[in-house]
Design a protein around this nucleic acid. Structure first.
Length: 580
DNA sequence: GCCGTTTTCGGCCCGACTGTTTTCAGTCG
């Protein structure tokens, strides 16, 4: 039995590798999809697959078919999957790295191996440098340039985990740790607590009266893979492939330890400097005065002892060096401030939920309103709506609203659209229909490889359009996938502020576009922002938490985020802006 | 490979755009 050797992450990687190799080898694409689905099913499972297997509960893994469960059994029994071995004989595994590079799909990856012998990113770089790549039929100068551009964006992708996935794992860990008898309190630290868009390692700080005993208890949790205990610290791997570090401290040092583990490095050094300045020394074990531990039961007291107001973790990277923090910071946007989600899709275009289902899911989250913004007609696969279908959709939205109204429920749906911003900045729907809608989100989806000037003009033109209320995921970046359009965001922000158009923080886990830095710039210029889920399924509404974290990193206060406004306030904003 | 059955096999995600061609293959959303 090889059962202890595989985490969920390992198994998902194996299925993904099989799918990639099959695709490169030109196998039936529906079989490829089957393996991909299995990879997703496994990595979406919080419980250890090994444990489910031992309890004969693999059939409880949602989305995992019987055939794929058998492959997992084969892996646990023999240590390998025979089909995978046979694929590897036909195509080196390294070739699948090439698929991550923009402009290289399975066919090209296969040709790069067969015709030039390229087996990985390093080979690909060499082939670009020595001109071998340009010699391949069908790959011209522009494609080579595109590949050269994309290769670096892709290189560090494997190392980091998307905020959403780290968040989910962090939640699961907190829940389990909290139930241990020796635990008084527990919190995330590190980049997860700071709300970074991608996370390296997961850091957690725990408070206990008996830190050593508590560390041992933590090491027994089923979520941990190969845990190691060093006095009051636990190191382990997690099922999703991340590395975990848990530090247990005594109640008296909680404030100091949590702040030191939250960081970042620069903020940590700055805190230590401030401590010295006030006659203390500060390290991960606590705050000391004349060599004696000084009680700091929480972070607020730590910052107070160092002569300043508590700084929310999301802003700590910005408060470093000689920058003096304000004595009181305005409260940042919180999840509870959100009154409406203004960007979501339904089965009318490419979503999975009906209008009524998406509305109810938004209402249950505590919103008073939400906007249905299906795709406008342009992108084929999204089944976009033209004017005629949008008018038909209006009737269904009116009906849902009427039902809420009749039931005396305080919830209202706005009718909107997510319209494509075309290459030249024109919108993909006629002005007539755009003006009929309650709200218009305009987003760039295709042709994201433009020169900076053209890409910028494209957005500026859309912002100037009188019907546009929100610019959706302005750069179109995909985390770990592509950088997005080379837009001059400074000019875009100025224009958005001028025209009263909101810039979106899209909460899609691989988007988080715009990010914290741009939020900060936008707010400084007087623009408003809109934090939206871009949900295509009722379950996606939860993504808003990562969007809120991103807005917080930009220092957004509730008033600066149009989603916190009451329906009357939002409606008057939409009306005023439309008649400009 | 999986699903849902008219339970034995056909359908499953397809259309636009790009770059390279000279009529289209491949990538992307």
């Amino acid at each position: 039995m090889y059962i202890d050797e595989f985490t969920n992450h390992d198994i998902a990687q194996l299925f993904a590798a099989i799918a990639d190799l099959m695709e490169i080898l030109g196998e039936d694409r529906f079989r490829v999809i089957a393996y991909r689905r299995a990879a997703t099913a496994v990595s979406d499972t919080p419980m250890a697959i090994t444990q489910l297997y031992q309890n004969q509960h693999l059939d409880r893994v949602e989305g995992l078919s019987k055939g794929m469960a058998e492959k997992i059994a084969e892996l646990f029994v023999t240590g390998d999957i025979e089909y995978y071995s046979r694929l590897k004989e036909r195509m080196p595994v390294g070739v699948r790295e090439l698929l991550r590079v923009p402009h290289i799909g399975p066919r090209t990856a296969g040709r790069l191996y067969n015709e030039v012998g390229i087996t990985g990113l390093a080979d690909l770089r060499d082939a670009i440098d020595n001109g071998r790549l340009a010699q391949i039929k069908g790959i011209g100068a522009r494609t080579v340039a595109g590949i050269r551009e994309g290769i670096d964006a892709v290189a560090d992708r494997e190392e980091r985990t998307l905020l959403l996935h780290a968040w989910q794992m962090g939640q699961a860990l907190l829940t389990e740790i909290r139930q241990l008898p020796a635990v008084i309190d527990v919190a995330w630290a590190g980049s997860l607590r700071r709300g970074q868009t991608t996370i390296g390692d997961l850091d957690i700080v725990v408070v206990s009266h008996d830190p050593r005993a508590c560390a041992v208890q933590i090491s027994t949790l089923a979520l941990l893979v190969k845990p190691m205990v060093q006095e009051t610290r636990v190191m382990a791997r997690l099922q999703n492939g991340m590395t975990l570090e848990v530090q247990v401290c005594a109640p008296a040092t909680w404030g100091a330890t949590l702040a030191m583990y939250t960081g970042n490095d620069a903020h940590r050094l700055w805190l230590q400097k401030q401590a010295l300045h006030h006659g203390y020394t500060l390290d991960r074990d606590g705050l000391y005065r004349h060599g004696v531990v000084y009680d700091v039961p929480d972070e607020v007291q730590l910052y107070a002892l160092l002569g300043m107001a508590w700084i929310p973790p999301e802003l700590r990277e910005y408060y470093i060096a000689d920058v003096l923090p304000p004595q009181t910071l305005a409260p940042l946007l919180a999840l509870g401030d959100m009154q409406g989600d203004l960007h979501m899709h339904t089965t009318w275009s490419d979503g999975n939920g009906s209008i009524a289902q998406m509305a109810e899911s938004a209402r249950v989250r505590g919103y008073t309103h939400a906007a249905i913004t299906d795709h406008g007609a342009l992108i084929g696969v999204t089944n976009g709506l033209d004017s005629k279908r949008l008018r038909a959709q209006r009737l269904e939205i009116d009906m849902v609203n009427a039902e809420y109204h009749a039931a005396g429920v305080d919830f209202h749906l706005l009718h909107g659209v997510e319209v494509d911003i075309l290459v030249d900045g024109h919108l993909a729907l006629p002005n007539g229909i755009l003006h009929e809608l309650d709200i218009v989100v305009a987003s760039p989806h295709i042709n994201l490889r433009q020169t900076p000037e053209v890409a910028t003009q494209r957005l500026l033109k859309a912002i100037a359009h009188p019907a546009v209320d929100i610019i959706g995921h302005p750069r179109g970046r995909i985390l770990g996938g592509r950088l997005g359009a080379p837009v001059d965001m400074e000019r875009v922000i100025v224009a958005a502020a001028h025209h009263g158009v909101a810039l979106e923080v899209n909460s899609g886990p691989d988007r988080l576009d715009i990010d914290g830095e741009l939020v900060q710039a936008a707010l400084a210029a007087g623009a408003v922002i809109s934090v939206n889920s871009d949900a295509h399924d009722v379950s996606n509404h939860a993504w808003i938490e990562q969007g809120v974290a991103t807005a917080r990193r930009g220092g957004a206060t509730p008033a600066q985020v149009i989603n916190t406004w009451s329906l009357p306030q939002l409606t008057s904003y939409l009306a005023r802006e439309r008649h400009k």
